[in-house]
Design a protein around this nucleic acid. Sequence first.
DNA 1: CCAAAAGTGTTCACCGTACACCCATGA
DNA 2: TCATGGGTGTACGGTGAACACTTTTGG
Lengths: 228, 228
Amino acid sequence: MRAAEETFSYRYPHPAVTTDVVVFTIRDGRLSILLVKRANAPYQGNWALPGGFLDIDEDLDTCAARELQEETGISGLYLEQLYTFGTTDRDPRERVISVTYYALIPQDALAVPRAASDASAVGWHDVERLPALAFDHAQIVTMAHRRLVAKLNYSTIALQFMPEAFTLSELQCVYEALLNQTLDKRNFRKRILALDLIEETGRQRRTGKHRPAREYRARHPERVEIIK
Amino acid sequence: MRAAEETFSYRYPHPAVTTDVVVFTIRDGRLSILLVKRANAPYQGNWALPGGFLDIDEDLDTCAARELQEETGISGLYLEQLYTFGTTDRDPRERVISVTYYALIPQDALAVPRAASDASAVGWHDVERLPALAFDHAQIVTMAHRRLVAKLNYSTIALQFMPEAFTLSELQCVYEALLNQTLDKRNFRKRILALDLIEETGRQRRTGKHRPAREYRARHPERVEIIK
DNA sequence: CCAAAAGTGTTCACCGTACACCCATGA
DNA sequence: TCATGGGTGTACGGTGAACACTTTTGG
């Protein structure tokens, strides 16, 4: 049985499997993603998505979370599988299948990500002004962006961008950044409150010389999918 | 450079990669999927999704289409990537990542699929009455079914189940099978025709001792995604 | 003329959208 | 008192849902 397994395993060559993650956040009212600068060939010096090779004994989801943690120091966020890219020529070194994920991180969690061994720099980039990306990562970002915007209309995904407490104006800014258009304040508030997914904290937020805003929080934070 | 590539390739063990396909059709007004009976261990004698190992030099999409062709003789249909399953324990032989697809085949294309070498039988099964499936294939079917139903509401995917010419009643039967509920005839016709995606062929269909039905066809058959 | 499926319109409730003014605060 | 963002309601049009009868054919 053991012998049969080994024969089976190496009858044909296997491709490498990686996970790559598109990490979104809202910075200064602009949708941005996290990129790492490649320290090694190929595409040395180019910006790329954080990601790396799957360990033979770890789950795909775990791999995505681990690579993100290793390369950027970020963990504990909303992470969802996006698509699997596997054309034969996408990596010049060998055949690589990339299982991609996208992640959403709250605005205030912008602890400056730290660069790790195989990245010489880590940074946020406005999705509308991305540098040239390594491999087929531009295609991955495009798909992730489309998926994110599509999900806005039938899910509560936007709440993942918010800190624990937030104001309705802040939430509206997130929607406007994602949809790339301005929204009517009254209609927005009516619609969001009708979903019954957020509730007032009872506190207020004073910022500047004007009327303070009510603070809200997500009503069911436990429904959030987090891959640890 | 060549040496470096080879060193890179085998620094870590690589998992096997397979594609598995959930092929849907409508049989006798019931949503059904295609299963193959496994000729070999593990799960010998169990029903499973058609699929198999990725060749090192073929695209993922091509692999899905090829495996389907080899195991069932079916080709040239709507094929879309679903999700990638990769928990460490999903195959007892070795680490296997499965990139899954789902496919839709028209009602009348039910050329009886033929069994190939590694399947002792091939057959259609009502999704509401599936046998026990090998590996995590039941989970894959559940996800494919949910995706298919969800897509009904914002896409023209149901047309993929139809032959070149069809009647509105036939199309309605497909929707009813997918949604598992009856629909109002007038509302259904109004909604479908308003989409402006089908047109009359000008011909009629006489079936039985009653009024003949008008035949329709898809207006933009070229927009269909087909993976050859 | 009867059985069987094809074909056809109207009404109503709800929802998304457009739109303008007062409120609370700090300076 | 003024500047700044916070907060509120109404009217309208479009869309989805409910609902029943006539038409055409074969036997």
